[in-house]
Computed example of a mutant assay.
Amino acid sequence: MPTEVALLESRALRVEQMGRVDVLDKVKSLVMLPDGIHVRTEDVARYFEVSTEVVKKVTQRHRGEVSENGLKLLRGDELQKFHRDMLSLWNGEGAESYPQAATQLTLYTRRTVLNVAMLLRDSDIARCVRTYLLDAEQDLRAGYASLEHRVTRVESCLAGVGSALQELGPVLDRMSHRLDSLDRRLDATHQVVGAMSVRLGHVAEDIVGIDGRMDELARNPKDLNRRRDKRS
């Protein structure tokens, strides 16, 4: 896990943390300009409770890095346009109190302020911001470790399931053959039952014929006697 010193010294580590601008408001409220996007050098100094000269020295020493993270220097027409935009957004009667830089204005975004927090050594507020970042990093790493452990356990369980399925394969194959054999036997049984049904149908017809003859003989007993005499 990175330490506070490593964060102060390593630009690569600072880059990894640049998305955590939410940490700023957890430590202290950062007062923005009316656009809700920018702050001035004085506002940054007030946030970190240091002088404006300290902030300027840090930004000058790491000019390339802070510029990549939103630092702007406005002059001329660009500066005048920015002032007009800010005045149009200013609410109430305080518009006349909006401070307008005469020749140039340095602007910071939340991302730039976070960058300064990871560079500024002599500020308790900056140290608190770094502590929040490092604690969040530790919690994130712990979460990843827990997730990795769970994934490992799931993979282990799946490996066991795979082995069990491999062992069940031959058993299922034998069961399939037995079921096929039972199906064939059932087909043969159905055929026998069908044949027996046909024969029983014939027998029933014969019985009906016999019953008819017996009824006829019962109605004509003389015919029965004549048949007996013929046989004798």
Rank of each mutant, 00 (worst) to 15 (best):
residue 57 K to F: 14
residue 205 E to Y: 04
residue 67 S to V: 12
residue 43 D to L: 02
residue 44 V to D: 01
residue 166 Q to R: 10
residue 152 T to M: 11
residue 151 V to K: 13
residue 110 R to E: 05
residue 187 D to G: 13
residue 97 S to I: 09
residue 3 T to W: 06
residue 171 V to G: 02
residue 117 A to M: 05
residue 4 E to S: 14
residue 19 G to W: 04
residue 90 W to K: 07
residue 93 E to N: 15
residue 38 H to A: 00
residue 92 G to Y: 10
residue 44 V to Y: 00
residue 52 T to C: 06
residue 115 N to S: 13
residue 215 D to E: 12
residue 199 R to W: 04
residue 124 D to C: 00
residue 119 L to Q: 01
residue 132 Y to M: 03
residue 13 L to F: 08
residue 203 V to I: 14
residue 203 V to H: 03
residue 73 L to R: 13
residue 115 N to D: 15
residue 11 R to F: 12
residue 210 I to K: 05
residue 106 T to M: 07
residue 206 D to Y: 01
residue 87 L to M: 08
residue 112 T to C: 05
residue 178 R to E: 11
residue 118 M to H: 05
residue 77 D to Q: 15
residue 164 A to N: 08
residue 84 R to T: 00
residue 223 D to V: 05
residue 75 R to G: 11
residue 183 D to L: 04
residue 214 M to S: 03
residue 152 T to Q: 10
residue 129 V to S: 12
residue 119 L to N: 00
residue 161 V to F: 11
residue 183 D to Y: 01
residue 53 E to P: 01
residue 134 L to V: 06
residue 44 V to W: 06
residue 21 V to I: 15
residue 201 G to E: 10
residue 207 I to G: 05
residue 218 A to K: 07
residue 104 Q to E: 13
residue 60 Q to K: 14
residue 51 S to N: 07
residue 174 R to C: 01
residue 39 V to A: 09
residue 202 H to W: 10
residue 133 L to F: 02
residue 69 N to R: 11
residue 102 A to M: 11
residue 103 T to A: 01
residue 148 E to S: 12
residue 203 V to M: 06
residue 105 L to Y: 07
residue 205 E to A: 00
residue 143 G to Q: 01
residue 162 G to R: 12
residue 160 G to S: 09
residue 143 G to P: 00
residue 77 D to T: 15
residue 62 H to P: 09
residue 125 I to G: 03
residue 23 V to N: 04
residue 161 V to H: 02
residue 225 N to E: 12
residue 80 Q to H: 05
residue 99 P to T: 05
residue 197 S to G: 09
residue 108 Y to D: 02
residue 96 E to M: 10
residue 36 G to V: 01
residue 4 E to N: 14
residue 227 R to M: 11
residue 204 A to C: 04
residue 188 A to S: 12
residue 55 V to P: 01
residue 39 V to Y: 09
residue 72 K to C: 05
residue 207 I to W: 03
residue 215 D to Q: 10
residue 224 L to P: 03
residue 46 R to G: 00
residue 104 Q to V: 01
residue 76 G to R: 14
residue 77 D to E: 15
residue 59 T to H: 07
residue 30 L to K: 04
residue 171 V to K: 11
residue 74 L to M: 10
residue 183 D to C: 00
residue 17 Q to H: 08
residue 45 A to V: 09
residue 91 N to F: 14
residue 130 R to G: 04
residue 101 A to N: 05
residue 53 E to D: 12
residue 33 L to P: 00
residue 98 Y to F: 13
residue 92 G to A: 08
residue 182 L to W: 09
residue 115 N to Y: 15
residue 179 L to K: 14
residue 40 R to A: 15
residue 221 P to G: 13
residue 151 V to Q: 14
residue 68 E to Y: 06
residue 193 V to S: 04
residue 38 H to K: 02
residue 157 C to P: 01
residue 108 Y to S: 02
